[in-house]
Design a protein around this nucleic acid. Structure first.
Length: 571
RNA sequence: CGGGGUGUAGCGCAGUUUGGCUUAGCGCGCCUGCUUUGGGAGCAGGAGGCCGGAGGUUCAAAUCCUCUCACCCCGACCA
């Protein structure tokens, strides 16, 4: 495939100045990408080769589900976005620009508007569906803070698919096939991952999954159960708290009473002051909706309120109320004796607890011995908090495990949000005009490249999975100035080429150490080392990048080993 | 957008506090030659900079002042 003296690449011994995660540092050091501007990268030949292989896998898997590839424009007219309402909704993340005639455009961060417009023009009957269209395209998002190289770039490559169906059943079946498709893709990449239930947001459909690759430096957090198949986005996760007998309801607990707690306005100091664990304190938080209605949320003192869950529960947007509740004795608020006009919502974790402390709704005082059953009646109980270490799987008895990861895919049932706004209607078999039901399925192509490096590396460099390694084998000619070694290496290179093996030939006139280090840095799975042993004994040495396994073989055996290595039948 | 920081050779940095000791330096990389060749070689020679940009102060500015631009870190954001 390539002789290194003819190739365009360079590696770096030194760490780049501004790479704060190993994957990014390696992608620069291995010469895969070059930064052009903040969050904007150039793919060099080696990086592009890997990117192409990732795209190939995605295309193969998508095509096998029956999806059809299209290519939409990166530059999109504003009027479609105005129709969908997102021209206003989308913040400064949307790259907006004007043409010479002062017409508004944007660089697409996603393509719902374009594709829904296509659907509007082309889908007329239920007979035109189901349909699943995808593209691999450059996307733009003016990230507030691009970071970690191509893991979070402003210009990036994404595969996005959009499905169109006449009914929910067909949507479900495409959703399922996309779920399977994404799992297949990630498995072919040889990565550890979870498909977790994800937040659908306020507009969201019922169902959404994120595909998360495990990586220490990931920006997403997930929880999963080691005992069953349960896994979820940290934000979304269901859980049960460990039953703590000492906190559960006892008969004949004393009535609550007021204690003076001057200057104590936070859980930590209250816990210290009263010598009570944080679990025995009721934290009272106030949220407001857009009409400035105030809601009180009660959670256990050691837990954090999860606004995403709360919003989902109430079905409306909420934020912390600060100014609006100055009359409510912040720091001394509590459920017992609270202004009765405020609706109280209590986290499930408090159910049946007694002997709790909470604010007395009077500056400088808290109540103790509150019984959560007896002393207040919340408007509703619910799950309003994040899971914590020690919490139990909702489906079985195991303790949940927390891991960090990188989101590389997201599948989503859109429903009729866009088709209604953009008038993508079809005539159903019952003769009625209905909005097309849509789904969207994204997978970050360039982000996969970054995520793979982030998950699969060691102190020497990248360790590519075989499916996307830029080359399968690297011929390392020790001392290319030795004519015997050079002619042998040339011959071996030709032979590997003829066998259809993806081969890189390091024919540079540099010392062996340089070649070994570079080969390991750029992560070529197999090194084929040609030294004096070949002219003398007709043997070459093979070494695997993954585990350092070495073997000295005659040439034919070596070639057979290499050819068979990807199928796992090597000896 | 708020807070902080950095711009000096392709990359990584020193020099800036206290203006002149610099013809602006070091390491890596690059070019030439010789030696070397199984885990980032040695020697010798060399190329490469309007010190981010624009104004100012001064006899004199990489160094001081003003304004700009770019990049980075922390926070809020994230189909």
């Amino acid at each position: 495939m390539v002789k290194l003296t003819d190739y365009f690449f360079s590696t770096y011994k030194e760490e780049p100045g501004n790479a704060d995660i190993p994957g990014y540092a390696l992608s620069i050091r291995a010469g895969l990408i070059k930064k052009t501007a903040a969050g904007i990268y150039t793919f060099m030949p080696l990086g592009l080769k890997v990117l192409g292989k990732i795209e190939k896998i995605i295309r193969e898997e998508m095509d096998s589900t029956g999806a059809l590839e299209i290519l939409m424009p990166a530059l999109q007219p504003a009027d479609l976005w105005i129709q969908s309402g997102r021209w206003q909704q989308y913040g400064p993340e949307l790259f907006r620009l004007k043409d010479r005639n002062d017409r508004q455009f944007c660089l697409g961060p996603t393509h719902e508007e374009i594709i829904t417009n296509i659907a509007h023009q082309n889908i007329k009957s239920y007979k035109d569906m189901p349909l699943n269209l995808y593209q691999i395209q450059v996307k733009f998002r003016d990230e507030i803070r691009p970071r970690y190289g191509i893991l979070r770039a402003r210009e990036f490559i994404m595969k996005d698919a959009y499905s169109f169906t006449a009914n929910e059943k067909d949507l479900d079946s495409i959703y399922e096939s996309m779920y399977k498709c994404y799992s297949n893709i990630i498995e072919r990449l040889g990565l550890k991952y979870f498909a977790v239930e994800a937040d659908t947001g306020l507009i969201g459909g019922k169902y959404s999954h994120e595909f998360i690759i495990l990586a220490k430096n990931g920006e997403d957090e997930i929880v999963y159960c080691p005992g069953c198949s349960y896994s979820a986005n940290y934000e979304m996760a269901d859980f049960r708290s460990k039953e703590d007998v000492s906190l559960t309801e006892e008969k004949d607990t004393p009535d609550y009473s007021e204690v003076s707690t001057p200057g104590i306005t936070d859980i930590k100091s209250l816990s210290t002051f009263l010598s009570l664990p944080e679990e025995r304190i009721i934290k009272t938080l106030f949220l407001k909706d857009c009409e400035k209605n105030i809601y009180a949320f009660l959670v256990s003192g050691h837990r954090e309120l999860n606004i995403a869950k709360v919003q989902k529960f109430l079905g409306k947007n909420l934020e912390m109320a600060d100014d609006e509740v100055s009359n409510l004795n912040i720091g001394y608020a509590g459920p017992a004796g609270l202004d009765s006009r405020i609706l109280i919502y209590a986290d499930n974790d408090l159910k049946h607890k007694s002997g709790m402390a909470a604010g007395a709704n009077r500056p400088g005082f808290h109540l103790i011995n509150i019984d959560c059953t007896r002393d207040f009646k919340p408007h509703a109980w619910g799950d309003f908090v994040y899971p914590q270490k020690g919490d139990i799987c909702p489906n079985c008895e195991h303790e949940l495990i927390f891991e960090k990861g990188i989101e590389i895919g997201h599948i989503f049932k859109l429903g009729t949000k866009y088709s209604e706004k953009m008038n993508a209607m079809f005539l159903d078999s019952d003769g009625k005009l209905k909005p097309v039901i849509m789904g969207c399925y994204g997978i970050g192509v360039s982000r996969i490249l970054a995520a793979v490096i982030e998950q699969l590396n060691d102190s020497r460099g990248i360790v590519w999975p075989l499916s996307i390694a830029p080359f399968l084998v690297n011929i390392i000619a020790i001392n290319i100035e030795d004519d015997d070694v050079k002619s042998a290496s040339d011959m071996i290179y030709d032979k590997l080429l003829k066998s259809g093996i993806e081969v890189m030939y390091d024919n540079r006139n540099v010392r062996a150490g340089v070649k070994f280090k570079d080969s390991d840095l750029i992560g070529i799975p197999i090194k084929l080392i040609v030294g004096k042993n070949f002219p003398e004994n007709k043997t070459v040495e093979l070494e695997l990048r993954k585990d350092g396994y070495k073997k000295t073989l005659d040439l034919d055996s070596a070639i057979r080993f290499i050819a068979e290595y990807p199928s796992g039948s090597h000896f």
